[in-house]
Design a protein around this nucleic acid. Structure first.
Length: 602
DNA sequence: CTAGGGTTAG
């Protein structure tokens, strides 16, 4: 049987390839296959064929196997089920290997199908199966399936394996259930470094860096063999970056240097990201310069980091340097490059990069790249061109694309086109509160109050809730969270007094609140108050109260800064002689002496 | 055959 390698697909196509070398045993198998009408019989025949030396996917055999399979009363339709059916003796080893393959592949879903098939075939998983299954569940964020795997492992008494426990930790962390993760953690008798990393990462991913850092302290304190490694550091840095917790991040950086982990390129990349996301591009560059092994990710992180901080030109310079170094950019690098162009108004240059993506770098533009181009045109005020660009895209425009256009319309007060984008958005992503806010601002900018009211009513009717804005401020070792109207901070009264004082000083500078963007469900005189209490104002007031004179104030906000706050913060930076850095949903604003690095273009 | 890490348009 010295067959040339012929793909199973060719075999399934049934063109008779390889038919010339039929042997008696193969002919017998095929005859058997045709006479059987149940899965076990098919498997037996397949096993018999393999025993006589016929390859697993011999074209003729595969063709008849598949034919017999799809002729069964209830044919297995998914690829995983087909494979499962084809296995002559599906034992737990082969199955685990297959589940692992799927769990690590770009499409992990068949791993779960195989699990169902195992269950149906009464083949119980062993202690090796759960980590693979949980990995697939974590990657698919399939909470229900993961929980059922958990209870199954309990039922089968397989939870004593530290591998299973660590996988459970990772799964719960990835799905955002850090309470469940923590519970598993608490019940573990033996913990290794992976255990600690999984639970730390679980907190870090869920915006709880304080808990992550407390656990880190615990690992250091506990008199055991567990030593934090590179994975631990990346988790901690990611947590700090997420919240812009610069001081905490710097402490982790010190530990990294002390423990000799600084040569790890993953850590270097995480540090670049931390400093970029904390608004200190200089330090990001410094880390980059000192890195012994720079990968594409390092370059990409720096390019994106510089771009969001308003250093578009510098970002592009690094990209050119990367090209000279013959390092091949990834699609994410190009997102960064286009992003840099759009935030600096470099329309022509952006188009040059976009047009040569495929020929020059071998990267086929994805929807993200098209999104950047819509943003590039829209920001520059070429709103009609942006619309034409969308209509001529080879990809189906998604909600983000239309949202970008709506944002550009709101920025440039183009009601008609904004309504076109809106009509797509309510079909593609109904109930997205940010879209209501954008359209409302667009109407309000044109003083179309009747439409604003109408929109407001449909928002209430549809149960669409505005995402509450909140701002984070790091002071000392703590990250404070401010929400509009929230009075849970024990110093609320003095914060509001401070706001009064700020308002007085700003008015002396000639500041008049721009109330038009406030959703019009409140009275005119209340609008100004509402603006004053936007979460970033509370955070800034608190920062002014609590930090040393002249110290920079860093804020991270979950939404975009409104026009009014942007103006007010510019003035605050001048009047109080403070550098104020605000990380927005979309970029950085560095306020100093009454101006912002975004040049009012954001 | 078993577990964990970095960059992604608004």
């Amino acid at each position: 049987m010295h067959d040339k390698q012929i793909s199973p697909i060719a075999a399934a196509a049934g063109n008779g390839a390889g038919a010339g070398d039929t042997t008696p045993s193969l002919r017998r198998c095929i005859a058997l296959l045709r006479s059987h009408t149940s899965l076990p019989h098919l498997r037996q025949t397949h096993a018999h064929a393999l025993r006589t030396g016929i390859p697993l996917f011999h074209p003729l055999l595969a063709k008849h196997l598949i034919f017999s399979l799809i002729s069964l009363p209830s044919p297995p339709l998914s690829y995983a089920e087909l494979l499962f059916s084809l296995l002559p003796n599906p034992n737990i080893f082969t199955l685990n290997t297959m589940i692992r393959g799927y769990a690590e592949s770009p499409h992990p879903f068949p791993a779960l199908l195989l699990h169902r098939r195992m269950h149906a075939a009464s083949l119980p998983p062993d202690s090796h199966t759960y980590p693979f299954l949980l990995k697939a569940c974590a990657r698919l964020l399939d909470l229900r399936h993961g929980e059922s795997v958990h209870s199954l492992s309990v039922k089968n008494a397989h939870t004593s394996s530290v591998f299973v426990q660590n996988s459970l930790l990772h799964f719960y962390g990835a799905c955002g259930l850090f309470e469940s993760a923590h519970q598993v953690f608490e019940e573990m008798p033996v913990r290794n470094v992976v255990t600690w990393n999984s639970v730390i990462n679980g907190f870090a991913l869920n915006g709880r860096p304080n808990e992550a850092l407390t656990l880190f302290q615990q690992v250091l304190d506990e008199e055991n063999e567990v030593k934090p490694d590179g994975f631990t550091m990346v988790s901690l840095l990611t947590a700090c970056a997420e919240l812009g917790a610069l001081a905490l991040g710097r402490r982790v950086h010190l530990y990294i240097i002390k423990s000799g982990l600084y040569q790890n390129s993953h850590i270097g990349n995480a540090l670049i990201d931390l400093y970029s996301k904390s608004g200190v591009a200089v330090d990001a560059c410094k880390v980059f310069d000192e890195m012994p092994d720079r990968t594409v990710v390092s370059w990409t992180s720096l390019i994106v980091g510089l771009a969001v901080n308003g250093f578009g030109k510098e970002a592009l310079k690094f990209f050119e340097e990367m090209e000279i170094g013959k390092l091949k950019p990834t699609e994410i690098t190009l997102v960064g490059v286009l992003y840099a162009c759009s935030h600096c108004g470099l329309v022509d240059q952006g188009f040059r990069y976009f047009n040569q993506m495929k020929d020059e770098y071998g990267i086929v533009p994805r929807i993200e790249h098209y999104g950047c181009m819509v943003d590039l045109l829209g920001r520059a005020g070429l709103v009609n061109k942006a619309h034409d660009f969308i209509l001529n895209m080879p990809l189906e425009p998604n909600a983000v694309i239309w949202r970008t256009l709506l944002g550009a319309c709101a920025m440039h007060k183009r009601v008609g086109l904004g309504e076109v984008a809106w009509s797509r958005l309510i079909k593609l992503d109904p109930g997205h509160s940010g879209d209501y806010v954008l359209l409302s601002n667009l109407y309000a900018g044109g003083s179309r109050w009747a439409e604003v009211q109408k929109l407001r009513r449909s928002m209430i009717k549809g149960g669409v809730k505005k995402t509450p804005g909140h701002s984070l401020l790091e002071l000392g070792n703590k990250v404070y969270d401010f929400v509009m109207g929230d009075r849970s901070n024990p110093e609320t009264d003095s914060i509001y007094e401070k706001l009064e004082e700020i308002a007085k000083r700003l008015r002396k500078e000639g500041y008049v609140a721009r109330t038009m963007n406030v959703l019009a469900d409140i009275q005119e005189e209340e609008k100004e108050t509402a603006l004053c209490y936007h979460s970033e104002r509370l955070a800034i007031a608190f920062g002014l109260m609590k930090s040393a004179p002249g110290a920079a104030i860093r804020i991270v906000k979950n939404l975009r800064v409104c026009e009014d706050c942007h103006l007010a913060i510019k003035l605050i930076s001048k009047v109080y002689e403070r550098e104020i850095v605000v990380r927005d949903r979309s970029r950085f604003h560095h306020f100093r002496d009454g101006i912002c690095t975004c040049k009012d273009y954001w």
